[in-house]
Write a protein that binds this DNA or RNA. Structure first.
Ligand SMILES: [Mn+2]
Ligand SMILES: [Mn+2]
Ligand SMILES: [Zn+2]
Ligand SMILES: [Zn+2]
Lengths: 136, 136
DNA sequence: TTACTAAATTGTAATTATTACAATTTTACA
DNA sequence: TGTAAAATTGTAATAATTACAATTTAGTAA
């Protein structure tokens, strides 16, 4: 838990138990959860937790680049602690999101366009290995 | 307009005036509009148009790969006729989405993962050239 | 430790994009 | 031209996200 306190302190964010458990949840569950999923799971052991607080915590953490929002599914935001550069694969059948460990060679090229780049997202959509097996 | 009839026919989609004007709108307005934007603009000259029809048309066109949905902004879906392979830049300040003409060298690599790839999206987020000028 | 202030949390209500659905209209085809 | 399947329409429902005001808490300095 001291690990998460350090992260918040480094980013000049006030230390609250709510931010700590959200951060811990994302760190320990690499499932790219939605805000609602985070809320439901944490609510079990933290009955006083409010959903608005989860949203607020996610916004704060995102603003400081500690976590990132993933828009791949289209109907909801999902969250991730980006340990290293990676892309995401979204299975249209089962809705699963998995990490794809490839780096993006386009990052260097981006400077030519004159825009200030802050985030790069690579989304691949299709049918996952497991669903392919089941489907055939 | 015959151009759009052909596209629908080739994809075994029934020819309706609503689908034609949605298709024409996307073809002539490279602004990556939302469903609501498409509806509002077309409603002016097509007062009987229903918003549900716009949604239905977009789903049908997307299912056949004629158009693509862009999830970059997080709060809404935006649509695009992908003439060639390109990525998208989203300005966090003004909300604009512009095409970035780069190809994705990762497409080849994707086969290694065992998933069936159907779509590839490259999203870059930051501050656009124009907003950078204004802001300084 | 205590008191203070700014910021965070909470619960509820509002908003907004999208979907569901049943009635009506239209398309494709014989 | 007649018919069946599919598309359109309008309205109502859903669900993710945001707004907001009251309450609580964190950080800090006396
Ligand atoms: Mn990830
Ligand atoms: Mn585009
Ligand atoms: Zn799957
Ligand atoms: Zn801009």
């Amino acid at each position: 838990m001291e690990k998460y306190v350090k992260i918040l302190k480094k980013n000049d964010l006030k230390i609250t138990s709510q931010r700590l458990i959200v951060l811990q949840y994302l760190d320990e569950n690499c499932i790219h959860p939605t805000a609602d999923q985070i809320y439901s799971d944490l609510k079990i052991n933290n009955p006083s937790l409010s959903k608005t607080t989860v949203y607020n915590a996610l916004v704060a953490l995102q603003k400081h680049g500690i976590i990132q929002a993933i828009t791949i599914s289209g109907s909801e935001l999902r969250y991730d602690i980006p340990h290293g550069m990676h892309h995401h694969f979204y299975c249209k059948k089962c809705g699963k999101i998995v990490d794809i460990d490839i780096s993006c060679p386009n990052i260097k090229k981006m400077s030519e366009f004159g825009h200030k780049v802050e985030e790069i997202h690579g989304y691949i959509k299709g049918i996952c290995k497991e669903c392919l097996k089941k489907g055939s």
